[in-house]
Design a protein around this nucleic acid. Sequence first.
DNA 1: ACATATCCGTAATAATAGTTACGGTTTCTG
DNA 2: CAGAAACCGTAACTATTATTACGGATATGT
Lengths: 207, 207
Amino acid sequence: MREEKRSLRQQQIEAAAYEVLEAKGYGGTSMQGIAKQARASNETLYNWYGDKQGLFRALVTRNAEEVRSHLEAELQTDHDALSILGSLGPKLLNLLTGDRAVALNRAAAADSSGELGATLSRAGREAVFPLLEQVLLRARQEGHLRFEESGAAVGLYLDLLIGDQQIRRVIGRLPAPTDEFCEARSKRAVTHLRQLLGSQPYGDGHK
Amino acid sequence: MREEKRSLRQQQIEAAAYEVLEAKGYGGTSMQGIAKQARASNETLYNWYGDKQGLFRALVTRNAEEVRSHLEAELQTDHDALSILGSLGPKLLNLLTGDRAVALNRAAAADSSGELGATLSRAGREAVFPLLEQVLLRARQEGHLRFEESGAAVGLYLDLLIGDQQIRRVIGRLPAPTDEFCEARSKRAVTHLRQLLGSQPYGDGHK
DNA sequence: ACATATCCGTAATAATAGTTACGGTTTCTG
DNA sequence: CAGAAACCGTAACTATTATTACGGATATGT
C-alpha cells in the first residue's frame, strides 16, 4: 500500500523532471524547479535520490529498463528474424531519438564527471546490443544473412538505423521523429542490411 | 603588427577555452577559468566576444571553417571521385569525432537556447553536405555510383561513415579515434556505399 | 618621450542553484 | 485515537559564476 503510493509519487516526480528537462534543457533544470513542477518538496527529492546526479541516474536506468523490456518482448515472438527487425527497428529508433532519450543524452553530455554518460550507455546501447545480436544470429541461422563477426554486423545495423540522428537531435537540429519516419528509416536499414549481408542477391562481399 | 598580435592572442585564448572545455566539460567551464588558463583578463574576453555565448560562437565558427577548408582543398584535386572519398573520409571522421568537435557538441547540447546547436550544425553538417554532394555527383557522372536523389545518397554515406560515433563520443563512452580507426571506417563506408549504390555488381574478389 | 588605448590581475556585484533546515500538515502504525 | 514518521512549502546557507569595475602595467602611435 505504502509502496504503491511511493512508486506512483516517484513516477510523478520523474515525469516532472522530464517536463522541466525537455522545456529548459539540462542547464536550466534545477532541483527546486523539479520539486515545484511535481508539487513535491526539496527534502523528499534529496531523501529519495540522494543528490541531483542520483535523480538523473534514476531517470536513465528506468528509461533504459523500459527500452530493454520493450525490445525483449518483441524478441519473444517466433517470427522470422528479419521481420522481427522490421517491427523492432522503428520502436528502437523512436526510443533512441524521442524527447526523453534526447533530454537524457543532453544531461549526460553536460555532466562533467561522465558518470551519467556511462550509465546511459551501459543501460542503453550495451543492453540493446546483445538483443540485436541474438536477432542477427537467428537471421544467419535461418540463412537470410551472412557474416562472420556478429558484433560488426550489429554495429552496421545500428549505423544504418540510427546514423547521426541522435546527435542531430541532441544539438537541437532535428524535430522529434514521426512514426512514419521511424518506419521508413527502419525499412531502409533492413533493405540495405540485406543488400550488404544477404546471402541471396549479392553473394558474400566481405573477406 | 597589432592585428597579427591580436589574432595570435585570440588563438591562444581559444586554445585555452578548448583546454578547459575538454578537461572539465561545458558545465565546468567558466569565463574566469578560461581567462586564467589563457593568462588573459575577464575584461578582454568580454570586450572581444561580448559574452560567453559569443566566445563559443567564435569557437564553433572558426572550427567549422577549418573543417570546410580542409575538405574543400581535398576536393580541388582531380582524382576520381571515389578516391577523393577515400582520402576525405578519414579526415572528416576525425574532425567530427575529435576532441574539439566533441567539446563543441557538448557545449551545444548544454545550451538551452539552441543557438549554439544551430550554429554548429549550420557551419558543420550543412556546410559539408554540399561538398559531399559534389563528390557523389561526380562519382555518378564517372559511372561509379547510381542513385536518384543525391541528398539521400549523401545521408547514407554519412550514416555509414559517422554512424553513432559522434553521440557516443559526446556522452563520454568512446575514446578519441585513432588515425587507423578513421581510415578503416572510411574504407568500410566506401566499400558499403559501392555495394549499395555501385552500378556494377560488387564482386567478391577484389578489383 | 609623451599621451593614449589596451590589457592584466584582482575584486566587487548580483543572480542562480545545490544542499540543508524547520514549522505545519498529512499519512501511516499500533 | 495517539504517537511517530514522512511530506509539503518555504526559507536559509553556501558556493559558483556571468558580468562589471578599477588601479597598475604595457604597448602603440606620433
